[in-house]
Amino acid sequence: MEQQLHLIAAALLLGFATVGSGVGNGVLFSKFVEGVSRQPEARGTLLGSAMIGLAFVEAFPAILLALGLMTFFS
């Protein structure tokens, strides 16, 4: 019974990480495209900010992947 709960917890962690990452990337790059369409000369600055934001958004599923694997194998 306890092993089954660990599997469910790991699956939920990985699922939420995937959904959260997808939503975060979608919002981030939709705002990037919106910003570039409003002010095309600021493309380079916006791209740099978007890449930093992407790193933060992608850190979330990496951390949850590690927690999910730790939960799965514990």
Rank of each mutant, 00 (worst) to 15 (best):
G53Y: 02
E2A: 15
M1D: 10
G44I: 08
L69T: 14
L46T: 04
I52Y: 00
G15I: 04
M70S: 10
A66E: 04
L12W: 03
F56H: 04
L14F: 08
L28C: 06
H6Q: 15
Q39N: 14
A55I: 05
A50R: 05
V33I: 13
I52S: 04
F60C: 13
L69S: 13
F56V: 15
E34P: 03
N25D: 03
M1N: 08
E2H: 12
V19I: 14
P40H: 03
V36Y: 01
S74E: 12
V27N: 05
G24P: 00
A66I: 15
A59R: 01
F16K: 05
G20H: 07
V36G: 02
S30C: 07
P61D: 06
L28G: 04
G24M: 03
I63K: 00
F72D: 13
S49H: 03
L65G: 09
L54D: 12
T71M: 15
I8Y: 07
G68F: 09
R38C: 01
T18K: 08
V57S: 11
I8F: 11
A9G: 11
A10Y: 01
S37D: 06
L46C: 03
T45G: 07
F72E: 14
Q39F: 02
G68Q: 09
G68A: 15
F56Y: 08
Q3W: 14
E58P: 07
Q39M: 07
F73K: 04
Q39D: 12
L5D: 09
F16H: 06
R38P: 02
S74C: 10
Q4A: 15
P40G: 03
V27F: 14
Q39R: 09
F72S: 12
L13D: 13
G44Q: 12
Q3Y: 13
N25T: 03
G26T: 11
V23S: 08
A10W: 02
S49Q: 10
K31Y: 09
I63Y: 07
A59E: 03
G26F: 06
L47W: 01
L5Q: 12
P40N: 07
M1A: 13
L5V: 09
S21C: 11
F16T: 13
G24F: 01
A66P: 00
I52Q: 05
M1C: 11
S74M: 14
A11P: 05
A59I: 02
P61N: 06
G48F: 09
T18S: 14
G68W: 10
F32N: 02
S21W: 07
S30N: 12
Q39W: 02
S49V: 03
F29I: 11
G22P: 01
L46K: 02
S74W: 10
G24N: 02
Q39G: 00
F72H: 09
M70L: 15
L12K: 04
A17F: 10
F56T: 12
V36I: 12
